[in-house]
Design a protein around this nucleic acid. Structure first.
Lengths: 267, 267
DNA sequence: CATGAAATTCCGTTGAATGGAATTTTCGAT
DNA sequence: ATCGAAAATTCCATTCAACGGAATTTCATG
């Protein structure tokens, strides 16, 4: 069972097509190739694509007969990235910090056993990071932002993620369980992760969690920079700034706390 | 809003639900409300949502029983061919210009009779604009970026858009046909739109088109600022910078020009 | 604890999606 | 220009997956 045909049914079919189109690159993909990769009959593929085209979810270039993702999917997706409004909330923060620090900032959200980058504000320096650009995904425990999330997960969930991720971490040259757990404790104490993990030579960073009303991490703010730019005192300053911003964001996220819903509904 | 039930069939049903969820805000929406707005039976709605949930295209908060757009929908578009790669191409440009000018920049794409904002890089000043944030939509002809696109459309398409949009423009306090056409000519001559359209008091801006290989506008780069910050000489400087950036982006877009594909394939 | 509203499951029915086959279009080779 | 192969597109009889009315469970509210 590789990626399996997902949930069967027409919905599954539609999104397996969309994912294939999405991974086909900006040049687009032809019907036949698409049908083959999706293991669907050509007429079926064609009919679904027509329907998707009518919705502007896919675009069809009549000249090259190639399909690409359409504008409406893009617009829909822009809203989808707004996990609990986090993206909109955090964007000004990222821009401001990038401007004042001259560093690259990331907004990561917790998703399953991974952290996913949903926003990024690039500083002037070229930065290598695990998460890469928007859409990038790393196992929880790899990278400062990702570790910050892991450290502030409820114990059961944290254990589960560690158990699941330890094997995967080998691919990244990650730590063994003992040192990981030690780091998590320290991060919980400090409120941020600034480990010079050294996983990418010359690169360093700081990550702080964004917590929900129950104190569980839902996301993280992090910066990525080079080791020499992250002197201990500068690291302390940056950690403080990040924590402050993360706290401010947390406060704005938490109004969605279900216990307050009644008040909002009354308006 | 609902212009019609879109394309019928299950695909139409799926995306009308997704659009409704998307427009429900980050708080999410409940099954019953969704079913009612979509004019679908609750069980049908429920089944489709389950399938979408299995794909992580929608997220379901078990606590509040509310549905929101899921992360995978975001990742689908983020990882891949967003509008011919324009967004990725333009993002660094927007950030750079925002940093150096201290202004808010917009990337608009041509879509039907409208221009749609697909990226925006906010400067320090609070800016009022028609397009608003990402996803915002204005009729072609309203706002500098939008006018820049309209001016560089093929004549037939331009006429069609003007005919269609003139009535709509009344809502924005837009110009009459004669002055609009006069402005379009000027924009075509100058290569940019810097009209102090005065549609939003105190606000001004500059828009330049991003052209495809055939010289048709596919998008526009624009800045939005206040009238007093846009002195004539600064406007000229900014227009020059924008044109240069837009040209650079055009060059990177155009390698995908179908007429050149054969050459690329031969490599 | 009672009550109503919402969510969820069930399942017999049916019509919409399916896909094999036929047709048309595209495009490269001669 | 002509041909032929490959791709795209249309057709349509079949069927099975989606449908939705009804029943059941869950949940919030008074």
């Amino acid at each position: 069972m590789e990626h399996e045909t997902s949930a069967a049914g027409s919905v599954g079919r539609v999104f397996s097509l969309l994912r294939l189109i999405g991974s086909a690159g900006s040049g687009g993909i032809r019907l036949t190739d698409l049908a083959e990769r999706a293991a669907l009959p050509r007429p079926t593929t064609h009919r679904i694509l027509r329907a998707l085209g009518a919705e502007a979810i896919v675009a069809f270039d009549a000249r090259s007969k190639r399909y690409t993702l359409g504008l409406d999917l893009f617009l829909l997706a822009a809203r989808a990235g707004n996990v609990v409004g986090l993206r909109d909330l955090a964007r000004p923060t990222l821009l401001r910090l990038t401007a004042s620090l001259g560093e690259t900032l990331f907004l990561l959200v917790h998703n399953g056993y991974d952290a996913v980058c949903i926003e990024r504000s690039a500083g002037p320096l070229p930065i290598r990071s695990f998460t890469g650009d928007i859409g990038g995904r790393v196992p929880l425990g790899i990278g400062q932002g990702s570790v910050a999330i892991l450290a502030f997960l409820p114990p059961a969930e944290q254990d589960e993620a560690i158990r699941h991720n330890l094997p995967r971490m080998r691919d990244y040259g990650g730590p063994d369980e003992a040192s990981l757990r030690a780091e998590l404790l320290q991060v919980r104490r400090d409120g941020f992760c600034g480990g010079a993990s050294g996983l990418i030579p010359g690169m360093a960073g700081v990550g702080v969690p964004i917590l929900d009303a129950e104190g569980r991490a839902v996301a993280a703010l992090s910066i990525g920079t080079t080791t020499d730019r992250l002197t201990p005192d500068r690291k302390a300053i940056i950690a403080g700034m990040l924590r402050q911003e993360a706290t401010a964001i947390s406060r704005q996220v938490n109004p969605f706390d279900p216990t307050l819903r009644r008040a909002a509904a009354a308006m």
